[in-house]
């Protein structure tokens, strides 16, 4: 039996009727065509599907869409505001933190969740925060650097 849910994705309200076994990842990608959120492992180990639910980073592959009623969801498509990149997005570009790009959306949302709590995290805090986002290309060095740079920019009054 389908379940009616209403939630907000990137500022837009959606009312959907979803089957209980549909994950938020499946609904975002297949029904809302928000394909920026990626599937990498489907069991919460790689972080490619990370989105923010009420500001909290979750593996959308392990989040039942039917339980998202009333939630505020942010996906990668919601990071650009008024045509401007989020400081994290700009820093990822500038610091060379993007290679194949498949981990990038999930990585950015995890990083956003971290910087929303603390724009000046230590290296260890950054590493601990992104440990659940597998990047097979970069060795993480430039990702960590980019998160630091973005945090500084946010702390100095850039947009968050």
């Amino acid at each position: 039996m389908k379940i009616d849910v209403a939630f907000n994705v990137n500022g837009e309200e959606y009312q959907l009727s979803v089957e209980p076994h549909r994950t938020l990842l499946e609904v975002l990608r297949n029904e809302l065509d928000l394909t920026g959120t990626k599937e990498g492992c489907s069991e919460g180990e790689c972080g490619a599907c990370t989105v923010l639910v009420d500001g909290i980073p979750v593996n959308s592959c392990l989040f039942l869409a039917a339980t998202a009623n009333g939630k505020q969801i942010t996906t990668i498509e919601g990071l650009v505001k008024n045509g401007e990149l989020h400081p994290l997005q700009q820093a990822f570009i500038d610091q060379g933190a993007v290679q194949c790009g498949y981990c990038t959306p999930g990585m950015l949302l995890t990083a956003k969740a971290l910087l929303d709590i603390d724009p000046a995290p230590s290296d260890v805090e950054i590493k601990r925060a992104i440990a659940g986002n597998v990047c097979r290309c970069t060795g993480y060095v430039k990702i960590i650097e980019a998160i630091k740079v973005a945090g500084q920019q946010i702390a100095n009054g850039g947009k968050a």
């Binding site: 919460g44 990370t50 909290i56 980073p57 979750v58 593996n59 392990l62 971290l114 440990a131 986002n133």
Partner: peptide, 12 residues
């Protein structure tokens, strides 16, 4: 608790 899974898993 800090050693469990990831930021995401710990949050969920």
């Amino acid at each position: 608790c800090r050693l469990v899974g990831s930021f995401q898993i710990r949050s969920m």
